[in-house]
Amino acid sequence: MTQQRLDPLPTDWSRALAVVAHPDDLEYGAAAAVAAWTDGGREVVYLLATRGEAGIDSLPPAECAPLREREQRASAAVVGVRTVEFLDHRDGVIEYGTALRRDIAAAIRRHRPELVVTLNYRDTWGGVAWNTPDHRAVGRATLDAVADAGNRWIFPELTEQGLEPWGGVRWSAVAGSDRPTHAVDATAGFERSVRSLLEHRTYIEALTEEAPEKYCRSFLEGMVRAEAERFGGRPAVTFEVFAH
């Protein structure tokens, strides 16, 4: 059976907010798209729910958090992202609920994006690997917070804090989805996406015995090639897109 063609992700927008759970979540795929967006003069802001403090077994959280924050800021800079914010929810035990939705809605109101990006919110990665609770919680809360941000009667305390409702989000785009609908050409941004992931060197060296450069390049090459046939033969960063 022929798979459905992937449409180009819309480009008639100027501001995006990318919301994920951990440092490195955006670098495992979406960074090539981010590089293309910033090349086109668009502003992209990163919002991370945690500082990734529970991500390296050999480092206590108090040491790990500032290190991973530095790596994330350096990683974002490689693809043209100047603003990186952290919410300081606890790594590994993020709870889906109104507190998380409120924090993300506040960021949406503050940055007023037209595009919101997040990571796979489903239980599995393509039905073959179990997703983490943090990814599921942040992905779902981000999709819900888009509506929260536009409704002045949900979290009215945000309005009292000077954060006026923002209903201008036109699309939510989920990276890492096994049900992609759209894609961004990864050609121009690919090399920077490799360098961006490599900035998480401490994490990667703890994750694999493979040389970091080889690991990053082979992982990202496999990812952008996986759906190329559905995108005119071009290397693709794919997204499941919801219109608002």
Rank of each mutant, 00 (worst) to 15 (best):
T118F: 11
D144A: 11
A65C: 02
V44K: 11
A173T: 03
V169W: 02
V45T: 14
F242N: 13
L87H: 04
I94L: 11
G40L: 05
V93R: 05
E27R: 06
T238E: 03
P60S: 03
R152E: 10
A129D: 09
Q72Y: 06
H89V: 12
M223F: 09
K214E: 13
V169K: 01
R170A: 08
G150D: 00
Y215T: 04
V81L: 00
G232K: 00
W166P: 01
T50F: 03
L47A: 14
A107G: 09
L197C: 07
T187V: 10
Y203R: 15
G232W: 04
G189L: 08
A16I: 02
P23V: 08
S58M: 04
E53G: 06
T202C: 10
A173E: 01
H244L: 13
D39Y: 09
T118I: 10
R109E: 09
E157A: 15
A175N: 14
A137V: 01
Y203D: 05
G80Q: 00
E227T: 07
E157S: 15
A99S: 12
T202V: 15
D24K: 05
W125F: 14
P180V: 10
P23W: 09
M1K: 13
V93C: 07
T2C: 10
D148I: 01
A243R: 15
R102E: 15
P10E: 13
E114A: 13
D178S: 13
M223K: 10
R90F: 08
G41M: 05
H182W: 03
A36G: 13
R112H: 10
S177F: 01
R112L: 11
I56Q: 01
T118Q: 06
E160V: 14
L207D: 06
F155T: 03
D12N: 14
P156L: 01
L115D: 11
H182Y: 01
N131M: 04
R217A: 13
P156R: 09
E114V: 00
S14H: 11
G80S: 04
F242A: 15
I104G: 10
E53K: 03
P8N: 10
V184T: 07
D24H: 09
A183Q: 11
E240Y: 07
G55Q: 14
G139R: 06
E27Q: 15
